[in-house]
């Protein structure tokens, strides 16, 4: 009976009193509550629970450490040290998360910006892919400028560039960035500061795009009018 129940759990758990000494490899999530020594190679996640001790060189996709790890970890995605996690060894992974309360001694190698970007794209490819199919060549070229790291910075730019008068206008833009096209918003904010001429050109080229191009001139006209009024005063 108990054996049948266990068959439905599709991951591997090393219980708290178990010691494995040797080489462990596989293609599924592994939770260690006991002790594993030697070498661990997984194509998915390694979870070291509070009671877990891993003394091994580890090669995984994603490691979450709440217990103790002594050895080097190479992850293709992410290494996460939780508040109870303790680790001695080197980490090589595009994403490394060490939270308050975790203890760690060793080197961290996140790779160059390219690998980091690739890792992020692998995690969230879908918006970028749709934008490339729907948007024009210029948008796709602008998307080469680290598409996913951009959107967070866009709201900040807008907040700085629109001081008091325009509280309503900036709102549609972040929505657009979230919903449709991550890479596209960087171009309008960059265009706004210099002159009026650039957004107007965009209007001609991208008449099909509804919200983005018409707004910048409206911004600028509103700003200019008010500025002019202030000057007159």
């Amino acid at each position: 009976m108990s054996v049948n129940l266990k068959m439905f759990l599709k991951k591997t758990i090393i219980g708290p009193s178990i010691l494995i000494n040797g080489r462990l490899s596989g293609e599924e999530d592994l939770t260690v509550r006991g002790r594993v020594e030697g070498e661990v190679a997984l194509s998915r996640r390694l979870i070291v629970d509070k009671t877990g001790i891993v003394k091994a060189n580890v090669s995984v996709k994603h490691a979450i450490i709440s217990g103790v790890v002594v050895g080097n970890i190479t992850a293709t995605d992410c290494v996460e040290l939780t508040p109870g996690g303790r680790m001695v060894g080197d980490i090589a992974a595009p994403r490394v998360i060490i939270v308050e309360g975790a203890s760690f001694r060793g080197r961290v190698h996140m790779g160059d910006a390219q690998t980091l970007r690739e890792a992020r794209e692998r995690l969230g490819t879908k918006p970028a892919a749709t934008s490339q199919t729907s948007a024009s060549a210029r948008f796709s070229s602008s998307s080469s400028l680290s598409p996913i790291s951009r959107p967070p910075s866009v709201p900040r730019l807008i907040l700085r560039s629109t001081p008091i008068p325009l509280t309503q206008k900036p709102i549609p833009r972040p929505l657009n960035t979230m919903a449709n096209v991550p890479p596209s918003p960087p171009s309008p904010p960059e265009d706004i500061p210099p002159t009026d001429a650039l957004p107007m050109d965009d209007d001609d080229e991208f008449s099909g795009d509804k919200p983005l191009p018409p707004e910048p001139p409206a911004f600028m006209e509103a700003n200019q009018k008010k500025v002019v009024l202030k000057k007159k005063k």
Binding site: K11, T12, G15, P16, I20, G22, R23, E27, L30, G34
Partner: peptide
Amino acid sequence: MANTIIGSSIIIDGEISGDEDLVIQGT
């Protein structure tokens, strides 16, 4: 109370010891 399960895609080459039940679905 068996809480150690070696899943079907897992390969272990070495020694396993312990004081609890062990279920092996892998190698």
